[in-house]
Design a protein around this nucleic acid. Structure first.
Lengths: 217, 217
DNA sequence: ACCTGAACACCGTTCAAGT
DNA sequence: ACCTGAACACCGTTCAAGT
């Protein structure tokens, strides 16, 4: 919805506007992810683009608005996934499908997710003042609910959260140094899928608190 | 080393200095974690403390220096853990011990880790200009090496990284809403320990790429 | 439609000066 | 030892004005 914005009249103008706008978005993403949102000044972006600071306000109404434009698409994709998941039966197959789809989203937007991860504080106060609270926390919780089941025991919630974190952190952290991207994908899926299913505590637990924890105090 | 700084002469002065300094640290940690490092101005901190902006520079030589002072202790603890781990045999017991110790560190410094997590970008450029690169990335990698073994296959590296992330993210994310903190600890340990050991792929793999992936293309 | 120049309030930092 | 007031360069944002 932000990417295919060119449709309106790209043959009419110099198409230079579209060009400047997307160069701006591309450059901002790179700089925000690399050196951080707050450490990247609009002056730096403008200089590299060959325009004035003030010119940027023709394309975006604020610095935060640039981030919103970069993130928007992926937030929508996650929302779609959540909506889809809510209509699905609570089976192992559904959980696996959620993991696969989430993985797909993250893989396609690794740079954006890296940028989000690195600028959590700056981004979460971007909450648009509207009801879309926290932007991440909330959606994390929704996905955890879908995977572990609503009001699941903490242990299963932790497993589900770890499952999701493994995917995103794993992508961001290893994508650059992994020789074969397919191998990384397979490894991530393997770990994530293992975490997506609550294990029926096969081994009688290696922590001191086993089933015996009911006896305490 | 930063906490027990009072030893020098706390009976001599008004002990008001020590007091202002630690009130400053406490307040800064709270604000940085809550609203973010960059969104928290020194003016706000100073006002709440009842002094001028400039007064803060008597205690810390820069804004970043406040963060360094907050983080220092925990970085040192992690470094100690890494150093200890390097001298240990590569057994399952060692891995379990590393997980337990890491958990201990994170539990004791949850607020600091939350603050680090939320301000990654701001903090990682705090790299002191010295060689202590990235502050987190690097130490993460060292711990992963200790758990998975150096130059382990990606799958095992991912498992080890997930193990560590489960602990820190799990603490930060669930500590506040968990009814019983002991239960949370047990749940986190359970998941982390499962991830700390590479599974001998018991089930013949549920991803499309099994051992058969060698045949491809 | 696309961009500039100049001004705004605010930020982190420095420093001479006060007690 | 502990703190202030005033100044510095820089930041994001606005706006009237130019083409």
């Amino acid at each position: 919805m932000e990417e295919n914005f060119s449709g309106a009249g790209q043959g009419l103008g110099r198409d230079n506007g579209r060009d400047t706008r997307s160069r701006l978005r591309e450059l901002a993403l790179q700089l925000f992810a690399e050196q951080g949102y707050e450490k990247t000044s609009l002056r730096e972006i403008a200089e590299r683009l060959g325009v004035t600071k003030a010119a940027l306000y023709y394309y975006f109404k604020s610095k935060e608005d640039i981030v919103r434009s970069l993130v928007e698409d992926y937030v929508a994709q996650v929302d779609d996934l959540i909506a889809w998941g809510k209509d699905q039966p609570r089976t192992a197959a559904t959980r696996a499908e959620i993991v696969h789809r989430y993985m797909e989203i993250v893989v396609n937007g690794t740079e954006v997710f890296r940028m989000l991860q690195q600028n959590q504080a700056a981004v979460s106060s971007l909450a648009s003042a509207k009801e879309r609270g926290e932007l991440f926390r909330e959606r994390m919780d929704s996905l955890v609910d879908l995977i572990a089941g609503r009001d699941a025991p903490i242990r299963d919630q932790v497993r589900a959260a770890s499952c999701l974190m493994s995917i995103s952190i794993g992508c961001m952290h290893y994508q650059r140094r992994a020789a074969d991207p397919e191998e990384l994908r397979a490894a991530l899926l393997d770990v994530a899928l293992e975490l997506a299913d609550a294990t029926p505590e096969q081994a009688p637990s290696r922590t001191k608190l086993g089933p015996a924890s009911l006896i305490k105090s």
